[in-house]
Write a protein that binds this DNA or RNA. Structure first.
Lengths: 336, 336
DNA sequence: TTGTACGCGTTATCAC
DNA sequence: GTGATAACGCGTACAA
């Protein structure tokens, strides 16, 4: 294995100078630099990242913990984060938490083990009760809800506002009997409960009473659960002319479930989701949604994290918070 | 920062003994072990992975280079690989190549920089002409085609056989004018050309002449290109009663494109894809496909790679090769 | 502008 | 069963 010493010897300089050349330090005569570069090329020298990491205390890798990378929402988020991290010369290692509390705690532990310079954690299972666990001594950014008070940076979606806009959009299109497909796991504040709040507010504003029979509970935000929910809703005989789904993935399942029952979208029922995943533009009918600008969220999360990494060791200042903006994307599922 | 020395001091032993305890070596008296463990807990000691990496020459992380993690196929593959790697205590860092030759070369370079213990490379842009570039001196497994002769392990899909089965499935369902939506980028052997071979073979076996007007070329394997292809096909007025799409993602776009033109699937045209991505079960109509058993491919790729990592430094034996099996998944898009 | 000396935290070797 | 010592390869004071 060719080391920096070998290069130094070949170039007739000290390892120090080689290091300067590698790290683009000034104060190296051009001639010397060129000689070193030639030696590097000749010997096919590569820096040993492990040694550099040990010395600098950085790994050049950040962790990204998401529920499951094979769900479109997380895949698209991960792609955006990887791209944003690359602009800071950072690599991204992906952890899958399986949407469980334990999985998220595992991810926290990994960074504590100094595998990563920092962690971007997409929370699903952790709730306000776990605030203490988030008081970690390494850079972290929570990608999710504004439900934590601790000194932790947040990048969140406009859940309440977006859900209100989605519901209002259905109302504008003439819906009056609007179901909500949601999945609150307990009494805690989570994505589902925040989006429920927006749904409730929009109904109130329009003077439409909230009918508990139109709240369809699902156990996971999957297409499968969405399809089952739509079938249940249809089979129940409940009058429904609109459905707001807690995520697009669920909405795609809902579209499928309605198709199974011969319910026409948007003629019989209008459907809207949340996230604006890429697939929504290609379903039949295409899916209306709320677009929370994932790439803005991703770049902000990375920016926050990079900032924390840079100021590592300093006293922890107040937590930063960023709520993304959103737009309503009207497609065929709500009448175009 | 608390080091192994601190623990050693606190436990009244040497650092070596602490190391033995950490790494589960035998030959440590139980009493000593317990004292050490208590010290570790008391001090909240964490091993410094960077130092361990430097010493052992391993990073505990493998690279996975895919075109774009936000495409369902790669997302689902990545999830399977992360799960398989976890069973070997390995982390996975994801590189996005953007489906380009340069991106794939960059990924090769990163591993050469010893960032990873090994690399699983999903090739799209590299062709047989690049065989030399794949003669790298670190563990690597190619996830893709059997198009490389070099001493590199392969895990491939049954492209020709699967495509033949897909086409034969359409023929069985009564199709005679079968279009192929494909995207060969040049004269090289790639996914598209292999699946074309299978398509051609199936037509031959059924005595159906190949009509070049039914070969629809696309520039990328995306939903967008698929939708455009279906619209072109429909607008061309060509008689078509079946379409085999080179991937499911493209097929989902094709379904959408046909919907745009009022072409009914499967009544007017039957459609089948390749990959059996999860979304295919929830499209309307649901998508028939070829399932190449991704999880088997993923676990095999990781197994190959782990084997190479273990035998690192030894002479390079012959390349291993694994061709996955497949099943035909018949859904609504071909008549159920 | 370049070189020397040393430390980063861990583990392998080998002795006891 | 336990410990002393020497690497692993790089970066950084500090000296020259």
């Amino acid at each position: 294995m060719v080391t920096i010493q070998d290069v130094a010897k070949a170039a007739g300089v000290s390892a120090m100078t080689v290091s300067h050349v590698i790290n683009d330090h000034p104060h190296v005569k051009r001639e010397t630099r060129e000689r070193v570069l030639r030696a590097i090329a000749d010997l096919d020298y590569r820096v040993n990242v492990a040694a550099r990491n040990l010395r600098t205390g950085r790994t050049g890798t950040i962790g990204l913990a998401v529920a499951e990378i094979d769900r479109p929402y997380y895949g698209q988020l991960a792609a955006a984060i990887i791209a944003a991290a690359a602009r800071h010369d950072l690599k991204v290692a992906i952890e899958q938490t399986g949407a469980s509390r334990e999985g998220e705690l595992d991810a926290l532990a990994l960074s504590r083990n100094r595998l990563y310079d920092g962690l971007i954690l997409s929370t699903v299972g952790l709730g306000p009760a776990d605030t203490d666990l988030l008081k970690v001594d390494y850079p972290m950014v929570i990608l999710g809800e504004r439900i934590f008070d601790g000194p932790v940076d947040h990048v969140a979606m406009p859940n309440v506002e977006g859900a209100r806009a989605a519901t209002a959009h259905l109302i504008e299109r003439g819906c009056r009997r609007i179901a909500l497909v949601e999945g609150r796991l307990g009494d805690e504040v989570d994505v589902s409960s925040l989006r429920f709040d927006g749904y409730r507010e929009a109904l109130e504003e329009a003077g439409i009473p909230l009918d508990p029979r139109l709240l369809i509970h699902i156990e996971a935000f999957t297409m499968e659960e969405g399809a089952a929910a739509a079938r249940r809703l249809s089979d129940s005989g409940a009058e429904v002319d609109g459905v707001f789904c807690v995520t697009d993935t669920v909405a795609i399942g809902v579209l499928r479930g309605f198709a199974d029952r011969g319910v026409r979208v948007p003629q019989d029922v209008k459907v809207i989701g949340f996230d604006n995943i890429a697939e929504g533009a290609y379903t039949v009918p295409s899916l209306s949604s709320i677009d929370p600008d994932h790439s803005l969220m991703a770049s902000t999360a990375v920016r926050f994290l990079v900032g924390r990494v840079a100021e590592k060791g300093k006293k922890r200042p107040v937590a930063r918070e960023f709520i993304s903006r959103f737009t309503v994307v009207a497609r065929e599922s709500t009448g175009g």
